[in-house]
């Protein structure tokens, strides 16, 4: 089951990166909307901070290595998204979870831009981060409204459900 979850996570991350680069980025040029970041948030909201931290770091590192900025920046910020979303998840209302995901993704994008500005990386400026904050929240919010219920349904499917701990598997808890 764990192998299927890892394979599904890799497929989801690569699909999101491809859609982000091929469709979303050119259409939303004046906002830092990020489909992979929202995916990390949606998984963490449904599956908890552990899954969020792991997926956020792995997806961020792939995106970092495929970019021109220093590797580790997105790994760090998306891991943060995964951790905080997993801790702050409402798990009952899709709208509440979408708001959490959108806000955290926009904050993470701003933090990443600030970090890159400190590192003097190309493309990062604080003015840009400030001017893009609201459009980013709105865009990420729309993506989250679609992704959160989809991911929630997917992780609840039998084949992708998180493995239980050894105590439960041995039936000691019953």
């Amino acid at each position: 089951m764990t192998r299927i979850r890892i394979a599904a996570a890799i497929a989801a991350v690569l699909t999101c990166l491809a859609l982000q680069s091929g469709v979303l980025a050119p259409l939303a040029i004046s906002a830092a909307i990020s489909l992979p970041a929202v995916l990390v948030a949606a998984v963490a909201l449904s599956d908890g901070p552990g899954a969020g931290i792991a997926l956020g770091f792995a997806a961020g590192l792939i995106a970092d290595l495929g970019s021109t900025h220093p590797a580790g920046v997105l790994a760090l910020t998306w891991m943060g998204i995964g951790m905080v979303c997993g801790l702050a998840a409402d798990r009952k209302s899709v709208r509440a979870d979408a708001v959490i995901a959108a806000t955290l993704c926009a904050v993470a994008a701003s933090l990443a831009t600030m970090l890159l500005t400190l590192l003097n990386a190309d493309g990062a400026s604080l003015t840009l981060a400030a001017s893009q904050f609201l459009p980013t929240i709105l865009g990420d919010g729309v993506l989250a409204l679609v992704l959160v219920p989809l991911v929630r349904r997917a992780v609840r499917a039998d084949v992708l459900r998180a493995p239980r701990g050894p105590v439960v598997l041995l039936g000691v808890d019953s």
Partner: peptide, 27 residues
């Protein structure tokens, strides 16, 4: 609000340190 388990906290710290190493190496 939930809290991180001990293992999750350790994993987050290790991965954050790893990310910092990557940034330093790449710069």
């Amino acid at each position: 609000m939930r809290r991180l388990t001990r293992r999750q906290r350790l994993a987050a710290i290790v991965l954050a340190a790893l990310a910092a190493c990557f940034i330093t190496l790449d710069l």
